[in-house]
């Protein structure tokens, strides 16, 4: 464990908690892409199946349980409890255009052709594009609530910190995982446009609104 991975995990945890609390307290999921949240639930489910097969540490196991629990709770709030506030018209990204290519790629490019490894690889590839429905929705509505931008910032920051963690681990441990690194770079690049808007607008107290 290093400081970058620790703060990456904490940033990811913060994002998940911010979103869950935002929906719960405001009793509304307006502006939130339910499709992205379903993709994240799939990402955690397919990646953390090793909860059933191996124990790494209390930290590792508890964080995985929290991620899975919160992501399913968020999906439940969006599609069940507060479904009346779900903005399905703007959440129109065709996720099948993500899942099918990612699934095919996971079968073709992986470290080991075993079920757990292919599911893990699928999860890594899917995570790198899972935020697209959310970013697409914001581009369609032309704006985002400030709390939603904080959620997105933490979500984007987490994988950016993981990139530094992988540089650290390569230099000090000789460890690297090309699949995770390439997917992590793609994932972080997808947030660059948002990061720019976040720094130039939200951090200056303005509302995040895109030129219509």
């Amino acid at each position: 464990m290093n400081i970058f991975r620790l703060f990456g995990d904490l940033s990811h945890l913060a994002a998940i908690i911010i979103l869950l609390l935002k929906i719960w307290k405001s009793r509304s999921c307006a502006g939130i892409s339910g499709k992205s949240q379903i993709l994240f639930a799939i990402v955690f489910t397919t990646r953390y199946l090793d909860l059933l097969t191996s124990f790494i540490s209390l930290y590792n196991t508890s964080m995985k349980m929290i991620y899975i629990g919160c992501s399913y709770a968020t999906v439940y709030l969006i599609y069940a409890k507060f479904r009346a506030t779900y903005d399905g018209n703007h959440d129109s990204f065709r996720v099948e255009f993500l899942i099918v290519p990612v699934g095919g790629l996971a079968v073709l490019i992986n470290h080991d052709f075993s079920l757990l490894e292919i599911l893990w690889t699928f999860s890594i590839y899917l995570e790198s594009v899972a935020i697209l429905p959310q970013l697409f929705m914001i581009s369609k509505t032309g704006e985002a609530e400030t709390i939603t931008t904080h959620y997105l910032f933490c979500q984007g920051l987490y994988r950016a910190l993981y990139l530094i963690n992988w540089i650290w681990r390569f230099y000090f441990e000789g460890f690297f995982d090309m699949i995770a690194i390439v997917a992590g770079v793609v994932q972080t690049i997808l947030y660059c446009d948002f990061f720019y808007l976040y720094v130039t607008k939200v951090l200056k107290g303005k509302k995040l609104s895109l030129p219509a």
Partner: peptide
């Protein structure tokens, strides 16, 4: 070689 199979990250 990538030691990708060592899954200790979240």
């Amino acid at each position: 070689c990538p030691i990708g199979s060592r899954k200790d990250e979240l």
